[in-house]
């Protein structure tokens, strides 16, 4: 990540998502979006750390006695080797957590065309929600759709605009069933997004709806 870009992020994660990520109760696909946004956003990183402090405060309260011998067996297992030094991840277009799902940077993404120049790559996550990378050619649109559940869209390259606002690299749009939108990529550059949803999308026109089972979105 480039540090300078942190200042331009305008659309952040909700408190609800940061609390869920701190508590560790989100679906894997949402965790991936949250971890990717956090890699680019210090504001949300600080909010997350505050929510983790709540976890620390709750931990301080409850205690159940350990059986005797617990400490000795823990002491016997302590590592005596020096720890590996931490190296910050090499900079790349994709945030580090996402690169581990893709198996590399942008050039390693295995795109599949879904028509109209739009491409996608479904990422392997648990079934509680799905995650995919979306490639929208400069100036092109994703078909008009609504949502049955919650959908998170994080911009990784380029920018898009919909009925609500314009979203640039690092911005995340949090959509629920109330939002029906047609994201259009900026004319200047192809747009790459990470999108996650906990329910299948609902397309408003017939053809994308027929295609839906094949697109797996």
């Amino acid at each position: 990540m480039q540090w300078g870009e942190r200042m331009t992020i305008k659309h952040h994660l909700t408190e609800q998502l940061l609390m869920g990520y701190a508590a560790g109760t989100l679906p894997e696909a949402f965790n991936l979006v949250v971890a990717s946004h956090l890699s680019m956003c210090d504001d949300c990183r600080a909010t997350l750390a505050a929510y983790e402090e709540i976890g620390g405060a709750l931990l301080e309260e409850a205690g159940v006695a350990m059986s005797t011998g617990g400490l000795d067996s823990a002491l016997a297992r302590l590592d005596t080797r020096a720890p590996e030094p931490v190296r910050p991840a090499a900079p790349g277009a994709l945030p580090a957590p996402l690169r581990s799902y893709v198996g590399g940077d942008v050039d390693a993404i295995r795109w599949r065309s879904v028509g109209g120049g739009v491409k996608q790559a479904i990422l392997p996550t648990s079934e509680s929600a799905s995650a995919r990378l979306l490639f929208i050619p400069a100036g092109a649109a994703v078909p008009d759709h609504g949502h049955r559940g919650m959908e998170l869209t994080l911009v990784l390259q380029g920018a898009f605009a919909d009925e609500t606002d314009r979203f640039v690299r690092g911005d995340v749009e949090v959509a629920d069933q109330d939002l029906e939108h047609m994201p259009v990529a900026d004319i200047g550059a192809d747009c790459i997004c990470l999108a996650a949803t906990d329910a299948p999308l609902r397309f408003t026109s017939l053809i994308p709806r027929l295609l839906q089972p094949f697109l797996k979105i």
């Binding site: 965790n31 971890a35 996550t125």
Partner: peptide
């Protein structure tokens, strides 16, 4: 054993 939770990019020391 259900939902993995990837960590954000490391900031190092």
């Amino acid at each position: 054993r259900r939902d993995r939770r990837p960590e954000p990019e490391d900031l190092g020391w």
